[in-house]
Design a binder for these strands. Structure first.
Length: 949
RNA sequence: GGGUGCUUAGCUCAGCCGGUAGAGCAUCGCCCUUACAAGGCGGGGGUCGGCGGUUCGAACCCGUCAGCACCCACCA
């Protein structure tokens, strides 16, 4: 083995080998365990968040596979309608081409080309990460079988009365020129103005203001003066005394030569502005509702690109909405109709993809009814809305959120849900399976041919398919079903649905999780997954969200493989939407990664994600942490080298190598029993942490076991046996080394697949194990009979002994290599017995001569002292230890004990503590105080002795 | 306007059922001790955001305030 762990070579070797072995496919006849991948968008490449979630999913997959379950991790990718179309449009724009120029078919062909490109990158990234997905089952949301499922999905919902088409006010993106759903709208507070406009009263009516002054107009306040062209009324509150006499009268809409009624509606807030509101039903969601109540006409004044339409006065037609605003305000000012303009903060709706300001716009769209319709397919169980079973499933615990608190968010959204607009005026996506004849009749069916037979249409009747496509999420909400073969009742569907767990981010609980639950229950008659493990977001070192535009993204493979500062700078500053940001991005990058990133390898990257995966919280990616786990890999690598050097047949020729420790009458040494005992406890913990999705605690437990117990203590304790033990003793220790290392590799494998596989291949034969891959070996299960509290106690004693000597050595700056004499005072029988057994180990590990127990009357030489219970450990000072240094060390020790003792005495002096606390706590406290008192006495005496030298 | 989460060492974070605060990184000292200098050994470093309450005992439970973050919502 090389002296240092070189991740890349190891990764490449095993990735290929696993692929040859077809080891990722479900096998065996165990209980099924399945995870569907949240399909990455084919918009580009995987980011840190994907790598994070993949770590978790792969750890779960490998763990359950090793436990012998029939395990499937279903892979695939998502066509991601808007997102992908935008990427391709942007690329075209760079080449000076456009979507409209290409036409639909050519454009879609371009997107397919892009899809292949992005898909190739994504799948190679997934392979690099070691994700053990079953590639043979890979799906894409637009592959033919999936397409069929999406059509079936729509038709079934439609036939059950859960789909309708209608002219509604929707969120319209004038740049993309498509409707989007409520979820895709981001409301941001922005600085704007509140324009107070005077609308003249008709027929000589008048309005008296608070000060009794009479006006021939009323003032309405608006943040969007240009929408006045579409006004249908002015509304006041029914109980507003200021306007009581005006309700039912009319105003003259300036610039438009129209009369508008003054209406009364509870919607109006009397305290805002003047208490009078212009109502524009076709361009505002609230006004739309008011308009419905009062039967107001809908005047659509915008075109699809948010220019003024021909329904408006000629003067403004064709103007962009903001040009129109300026122009209208100018004209109103000229007429003296602008009362005043105030600065005002308002919520501006923007598309989460384009960032463009959205318009509420009146169009024909398809909706899923999530609120009010009765199902017409006679479904048993009292379905009222499709949301109800989805709420019940979580409420009744058939689906568990981890962390549990996310269910609140889920409930809140489903309980306040609106109908879902699923049609998009895009070219990339699933065409809606609906056909129209020339009279506008709609025929929904699985195909045009089916439409004709279903609705009895003549073959000659011309039909046009709806040009729109579905919202991406309308196809991904059946992902767990469709990837397993639905609508066919395949054996995969039967065994792997419901899936075991969904691992995803909180940002798509609404978009995806809730909708999958609804559709899974409706179409699949079962929840789509039992657990939902919600991960946090991966953020940059300052806690900012990672995004290309902020220039703070990291490619997970760059973390694994390392990247120079220059290359990272180039990646982050190229192809920016706002090139002006480049210097700022470069500066921040230089600050965060002054030397670029050193390679850490996939295993360390994965271990980092696991260790940071605490309780669903967002994580700040910490390159230092990753480097620490790279060191951990190296530690494991070198510990394995040590084991192999000492246990490989050539090295071990002089003694029995392995075999089961304890077999053949070989007595296990204390350290052997201790480390095996610890191993059982670790296996116990690991099982618990997997069950609880506590990957952070899992990682920490394994890290500490390997480093702090196996390496720091067990390997050191094995050395004297390996060099000086009898052949039988050596054989037993070799057996334990190999046995514990081999099991540890299996414990670690789900988190660190590559390094564990590579080492396991060399270690397994020594442990008498065979197998093509560690992946298919059983995950260690604790054997509680091998937990050995006596051995654990003995080793604790030994560690305390060694630490005491090391403390003296360290504080006195005595070279580690220098052997020290040690004398003992007050050793009781237990101490003597342990000493006899552990003398060799102590000698090697603490680098001391065999400790000698002083006789009762034997005088004590000047020495530095430490305590182990009542036993005093003495390191004679002669030629080694400076008197003042030892005095100050003792002072420090004494001060610390005094401080603690004082606090504890105070506690014991408290009657209510004695009376109120459980007796065992009080006893523990008493024992502690007694110990501290005696330590203090001994150390104080020791200090006096040294002082008087 | 509702809701959720967070605040612990210089930094990033653990801390389970309430019982004397932990890790990694950073820092200081001694060491190239044949598994590992990507290492070993030792040290220093915390009023657990503030205040109040419950309790024999609070980082942990309750209340409150402050700050930060996020989510939802139709106030022109």
């Amino acid at each position: 083995m090389d002296k240092t762990f070189e991740p890349r070579a190891v990764e490449d070797r095993w990735r290929e080998r696993w692929s040859e072995l077809d080891a990722f496919a479900p096998r065996g006849s165990g209980a099924p365990y399945s995870i569907v991948i949240p399909p990455p968008n084919v918009t580009g490449t995987l980011h840190m968040g994907h790598a994070f979630q993949h770590t978790i999913m792969d750890a779960l997959t490998r763990y359950h596979r090793m436990r012998g379950e029939r395990t499937l991790w279903q892979p695939g990718t998502d066509h991601a309608g808007i997102a992908t179309q935008m990427v391709v449009e942007r690329n075209l724009k760079r080449e000076g081409r456009s979507r409209s120029e290409l036409g639909r078919d050519t454009f879609v062909a371009e997107i397919w080309k892009w899809k292949e490109h992005s898909h190739a990158i994504i799948t190679s990234q997934i392979r690099r990460l070691g994700s053990s997905v079953d590639w043979s089952r890979e799906r894409f949301t637009m592959d033919p079988g999936y397409e069929r499922a999406v059509v079936e999905h729509f038709v079934r919902l439609h036939d059950a009365g859960l789909i309708y088409r209608g002219k509604r006010l929707v969120n319209w993106d004038p740049v993309l020129q498509t409707a989007i759903s409520d979820l895709e709208v981001k409301q941001e507070e922005e600085d704007g103005h509140l324009w107070h406009l005077r609308y003249p009263l008709a027929d000589g009516a008048s309005y008296r203001d608070e000060r009794g002054q009479s006006h021939d107009y009323i003032v309405v306040a608006t943040t969007r003066p240009e929408t006045m062209l579409g006004d249908a009324a002015v509304a006041v509150h029914p109980e507003d005394p200021r306007y009581r006499g005006l309700v039912g009268k009319e105003v003259v809409l300036p610039l438009c030569d129209r009369r508008l009624p003054i209406i009364a509606d509870e919607y109006v807030d009397r305290s805002f502005g003047t208490g009078a509101v212009k109502i524009t039903p076709a361009h505002d969601f609230n006004d739309y509702a008011v308009g419905q109540r009062h039967d107001l006409p809908l005047t659509n004044i915008f075109t699809a690109s948010a220019r003024i339409a021909d329904t408006a006065p000629a003067a403004y037609r064709g103007l962009d909405r903001y040009e129109a605003r300026e122009s209208i305000v100018r004209d109103l000012q000229a007429l003296g109709l602008v009362d005043r303009i105030e600065p005002h903060k308002l919520k501006v709706p923007r598309g989460d993809r384009t960032g463009s300001v959205l318009e509420p716009w009146l169009t024909d769209q398809w909706f899923v009814d999530l609120t009010r319709r009765q199902l017409t397919d006679g479904r048993p169980g009292g379905w009222t809305a499709i949301t109800e079973p989805a709420l019940a499933a979580v409420r009744e615990g058939r689906i568990h959120f981890v962390p549990d608190s996310w269910k609140t968010t889920y409930f809140h959204w489903l309980e306040n849900i609106q109908d879902w607009c699923i049609s998009r005026q895009l070219w990339w996506g699933h065409r809606i399976p609906a056909w129209y004849d020339d009279e506008g009749n709609i025929y929904v069916a699985r195909s045009e041919a089916e439409a004709r037979t279903r609705y009895g249409l003549k073959p000659s009747l011309p039909l046009r398919q709806d040009p729109d496509v579905f919202d991406t999420w309308f196809s991904s909400d059946i992902w767990p079903l469709a990837t397993l073969g639905w609508p066919d009742c395949t054996s995969e569907l039967r065994s792997f649905y419901p899936t075991s767990v969904l691992v995803t981010g909180f940002d798509i609980i609404f978009f995806w999780v809730a909708r999958m639950v609804m559709m899974g229950l409706y179409l699949g008659d079962e929840v789509p997954f039992r657990d939902v493990f919600i991960t946090g977001l991966v953020r940059d070192p300052e806690g900012n969200k990672m995004s290309k535009s902020k220039g703070n993204v990291l490619d997970p493979l760059d973390v694994a493989d390392g990247i120079t500062l220059d290359a990272l700078l180039a990646k982050r500053t190229s192809g920016l939407m706002q090139p002006a940001m480049a210097p700022k991005i470069a500066a921040k990058t230089r600050k965060d990664y002054p030397k670029g990133l050193a390679p850490v390898g996939i295993d360390a990257l994965r271990f980092t994600f696991a260790a940071l995966a605490t309780n669903g919280r967002d994580i700040r990616f910490d390159a230092g942490r990753a480097a620490g786990y790279r060191n951990f890999c190296n530690k494991l690598w070198n510990a394995s080298r040590f084991v192999l050097m000492n246990c490989e047949p050539a090295e071990a020729a002089s003694a029995p190598t392995v075999g089961t420790a304890g077999a053949a009458g070989i007595a296990s040494s204390l350290p052997d029993r201790w480390i095996r005992s610890r191993l059982q406890r670790v296996a116990l913990d690991a099982a618990r942490y997997f069950a609880d999705y506590r990957f952070d605690l899992l990682a920490r437990t394994l890290y500490e076991f390997v480093w702090n117990e196996f390496c720091d203590w067990y390997l050191e304790l094995s050395k004297p046996t390996l060099s000086d033990g009898t052949p039988a003793e050596r054989g037993a220790t070799r057996g334990t080394l190999v046995e514990v290392l081999e099991a540890t590799l299996r414990l670690l494998h789900p988190l660190m697949p590559f390094i564990t596989e590579d080492i396991w291949q060399r270690v397994a034969p020594l442990a008498g194990k065979t197998g093509a891959t560690i992946m298919l070996q059983p995950y260690p299960v604790a054997d509680e009979a091998r937990i050995d509290p006596v051995a654990e106690g003995d080793v604790e004693w030994l560690k305390a002994f060694v630490l005491a000597v090391r403390q003296i050595r360290g504080e006195m700056d005595i070279a580690p290599g220098r052997r020290l004499p040690v004398l003992l005072r007050n050793a009781d029988d237990g101490d003597r017995e342990r000493l006899a057994r552990l003398q060799a180990a102590i000698g090697t590990v603490a680098r001391v001569d065999p400790p000698r127990v002083l006789g009762p009357e034997e005088p004590e030489p000047p020495a530095a002292a430490a305590l182990l219970g009542d036993m005093k450990i003495l390191v004679p000072m002669a030629g080694l230890i400076d008197k003042d240094a030892e005095l100050s060390r003792l002072d420090k020790l004494i001060a610390r004990i005094e401080r603690d003792l004082e606090r504890n005495l105070q506690r014991l002096g408290n009657q209510r503590f004695i009376a109120g606390a459980p007796p065992e706590v009080v006893d523990k406290e008493r024992a502690r105080v007694a110990g501290q008192r005696s330590e203090l006495a001994t150390l104080t005496a020791q200090r006096e002795r040294i002082r008087t030298l």
